[in-house]
Design a protein around this nucleic acid. Structure first.
Lengths: 341, 341
DNA sequence: TTGTATGCGTTATCAG
DNA sequence: CTGATAACGCATACAA
């Protein structure tokens, strides 16, 4: 901020209270306040109040080599899936005295590197990372360097880094069951990028689920990104192919919305001609035309659990990595129905 | 982060390169690099690279009393209106060497106070604030204390603080014109909270616009918050009243969605029975049933302009406050049609 | 209970 | 061009 009146320092407070800086420091810190007389403490605190004193956290963090800050690395804040995660993380960490620094990588490797570097230079005490890919040299390197870190929503290949995710496999199985029960026998999957754990796990779960029902598992198309646009592209590709199908399991809600776009474009009616299921249950899906059947992931909970796990990791650095899987639930709406024929 | 191998300091780099810390510092800082020989600079930079040196920004900021950080204060990140603003802000500030610290106030005064306090203790060089209310003692006090600050989306009462907002009045006028041209003569307004400038400006613009068309301006109900739930409450209240109406100008898209909820509840058909217009053009409105007619606000631009304005304010602290109004555009979709009768 | 002294890692100001 | 030195604001070990 600017400085017509430069910010008061601890020294100003101490002078105003007629004590030494060390005493003032102790008076202002709840953990050391007991060491000094109640009377002095009161005087110091009053002086601090009067001057509008704000401790300089750079100085504090330099001295204590603690920042009371953790970094939260998000691929794209405009994807409605992430804000609830942010809130969940904040709800736990802030009540524990931490501040959360959110950075947006825009799904760009170089930005991610720069942002994480910036967080590290600010001595964050840990990282919650939502940008993991199965192969992720940067995260692997940081982890080896001993950076305290918890993954959220997505994992790396070998589960060597602690992570909190939704139980995608069960969610996909429930979705496929629902379609099969409606009578569908030709189900396609428009998967997310198979470079991400969510993409791969959901695609594998899809194959297993349809096979378990004795159905063909070859109708899988991979989207390059988790976006409406790429969902539409995949949908067009599916339509261009020979294969018949009456239902689509989309890798996530955005991909499902891409399907909606193509339906509108081609005059396909959902759910009359084709049923669709999304994944995540992002906001406002109940108001779509038709309302989208999807798998609800408890994103706020995911964030809160990741934050708790990070706190544990900070407290016990030697703690072995674990993966926490949170239950998901199928939400049936209007985009699924029995096949026409 | 944890420290199996404590982070290398400038001193480590200097030793590895066989120079003094001061020299190493100059070599690593692009602005002072010219002061030293190319050969030495190269040696230092190589050493830094090899050690994985990250400057400790707490130490730097303590010494320089600059943080290269600005704070961004958001009322609620899960409102889809804000992520694009965040991106716009980041796009400008990050290319200018600043980092952006986003905080969420949850529309809670106490949280806002605590969050801003925390930002200040981190010596942020300026604030971009999206939580303004017309009466806002906290912001007013900060401004008087000389805190560099730009408001976004909303203003305070007397425009004494620089601000970037959408041209709400023109947007509302265009929306009302559209309804009148369709033949509506009884138009209601479900306004946002009149404690916010957006709520009040839109409500005033609504009254002016309908009066300009010779229509009654008394059908205005205020929502307590900018939410779907409060929109629904206001809609029920409107229906419970005596007044006839065939169209609704909602204070924003969320309030309009609340109307949709009540329509579903009461079997009212939109746009056959009632037309609705929202405000903001948040994502996915085109996929609602029916697609929502709304006023598009260029949120990314708003963020970018606010960031530019903040940079100007940081450079020239004496600069008088100005308000920048960005143009908005009516987006006609399926929620508006000619009245039935 | 309070005061004194020191150093966190960096950069700015001097000398050389 | 480079090195020595001091200081940013705070917290803490130690002394009183």
């Amino acid at each position: 901020m600017s400085n017509p009146n430069p910010a008061p320092t601890l020294r100003d407070v101490a002078e105003a209270a007629g004590v030494h800086t060390a005493t003032a420091s102790r008076a202002l810190n709840p953990k050391t306040r007991q060491q000094i007389s109640a009377e002095t403490a009161r005087r110091v605190m009053r002086a601090a109040q009067a001057l509008g004193y704000q401790p300089n956290s750079a100085a504090r963090s330099l001295k204590t080599s603690r920042s009371s800050t953790v970094g939260l690395v998000i691929p794209d804040l405009t994807n409605p899936l992430f804000p609830p995660i942010v809130r969940g993380v904040e709800s736990v960490l802030e009540s524990d005295g931490y501040n959360v620094w959110i950075v947006n990588t825009d799904n760009d490797d170089e930005r991610e590197r720069a942002q994480i570097e910036s967080l590290r230079s600010r001595q964050v005490e840990g990282l919650i990372v939502a940008t993991a890919r199965l192969e992720h040299p940067l995260l692997r390197r940081l982890h080896q360097q001993g950076v305290t870190m918890v993954l959220i929503n997505r994992q790396v290949e070998d589960l060597s880094i602690p992570a909190v995710t939704g139980d995608d496999a069960t969610g996909v199985a429930a979705a496929v069951d629902h379609l099969v029960r409606l009578g569908h026998t030709r189900i396609a999957h428009l998967s997310g990028p198979l470079t991400t754990s969510t993409g791969r796990v959901r695609a594998q779960a899809f194959r297993h689920a349809v096979r378990d029902h004795g159905l063909p598992d070859d109708l899988v198309i991979e989207c390059a990104r988790w976006s409406e646009e790429d969902g539409a592209t995949a949908m067009r590709e599916l339509l261009a192919g020979e294969a018949q199908f009456t239902a689509i399991m989309a890798g996530n809600d955005l991909i499902a919305l891409g399907c909606y776009d193509v339906f509108a474009e081609r005059g396909i009616s959902c759910p009359d001609d084709v049923s669709v299921i999304g994944f995540n249950d992002m906001p406002f899906l109940d108001k779509l035309r038709p309302p989208l059947t999807t798998v609800a992931v408890p994103h706020h909970e995911l964030g809160a659990e990741a934050a708790r796990m990070l706190l544990d990791c900070i407290d016990q650095p030697a703690r072995p990595a674990r993966s926490l899987l949170l239950p998901v639930t199928l939400v049936v709406r209007g985009s699924t129905a029995a096949p026409r024929s």
